[in-house]
């Protein structure tokens, strides 16, 4: 069963692409979850859809055009959602849910008018094997850039997330780091959309981060565990998708889901196991 993954170049590229998305996506997901911005992550992932659809309509199945479209749409929606929650009286979650549904509706409408059912399926649910060498280089670039940028803004980003008042009081420019962070999130969502599909792209960022919370209470632990979960799941998902001829996005996301559920049952912190069968307590 594993043989084709060692010989078929398309499958090898699919596996590499999955590992690349996992390495940079999962740490961003940890920060999104800690900043209580999971919904924002979903919105950005879905916002990519109308952008890729526009790229598809203008240039056909061209990955650079579709990625560029997705990038532009993701940035616009991240900006509008940010402004809408700041300047209108609607609660943030309500306006984000609205944006996300509008984006999906617009994207699906555009694709059903101009593409085949197969195009629609590939864009929505991912087709890891369609990643070509050019796309792989782009993905490697985004992953490297994201990890470097995240290392640079790590401290101010953490402080801004944890205690924004302190950040403001010490004149720490929290807003700047927030913007850089959102930019990285958009870049990574676009990076992941071929492998995972626009409907599932946020899954590889967010669910490993949530599952990791059952295993660690430290930021470094959360990040490394979530990367590990993401890599295992995306590789396993791609193997399953190829074996059973299903789209790669749902296969990967469901595999992460299984790990999430297992963690919820057996994890070290806050799991069912920890609640009902705790280890012996310490002396103090």
């Amino acid at each position: 069963m594993l043989c084709p993954f060692l010989t078929d170049p398309a499958l090898k590229r699919a596996l590499v692409s999955a590992v690349l998305v996992s390495c940079s996506g999962a740490p961003l997901g940890v920060m999104l979850v800690l900043r209580r911005m999971s919904l924002m992550g979903d919105v950005i992932a879905h916002a990519i859809l109308p952008g890729t659809a526009a790229g598809f309509i203008l240039a056909g199945l061209s990955i650079p055009a579709m990625s560029l479209g997705g990038l532009i749409a993701g940035l616009i929606v991240a900006l509008i959602a940010g402004l809408a929650t700041r300047f209108t009286a609607i609660r943030e979650d309500a306006s984000l849910a609205t944006f996300y549904l509008l984006a999906v509706a617009a994207g699906i409408l555009m694709l059903s008018l101009h593409g085949t059912a197969q195009d629609l399926e590939d864009i929505l649910f991912g087709d890891a094997q369609s990643v070509d060498n050019q796309m792989l280089v782009y993905m490697a670039g985004v992953t490297s850039f994201t990890l470097l940028a995240l290392a640079v803004i790590y401290r101010p980003l953490v402080v801004e997330s944890f205690d924004p008042h302190f950040m403001r009081a010490v004149r720490g420019k929290g807003g700047l780091y927030h913007v850089i962070f959102m930019l990285l999130v958009v870049l990574n969502m676009v990076e992941g959309y071929r492998t995972l599909g626009t409907l599932m792209a946020s899954g590889l960022l967010l669910i490993p981060a949530v599952a990791a919370q059952f295993w660690s209470r430290k930021l470094s632990g959360l990040i490394s565990i979530s990367v590990l979960i993401a890599i295992i799941s995306s590789v396993a998902g791609i193997i399953l998708a190829e074996t059973y001829k299903v789209p790669s996005g749902p296969a990967i996301v469901l595999f992460i889901g299984a790990i999430y559920m297992g963690s919820g049952l057996l994890g070290r912190h806050g799991s069912v196991r920890a609640r009902y069968f705790p280890f012996r307590h310490f002396e103090a």
Binding site: L34, V158, S161, F162, H165, A169, K218, L219, G221
Partner: peptide
């Protein structure tokens, strides 16, 4: 230095 009222920090943060 400024210390705001108690409620304004996310105490669940893993630090």
């Amino acid at each position: 230095a400024y210390l705001p009222q108690q409620s304004e920090v996310d105490r669940s943060f893993p630090l």
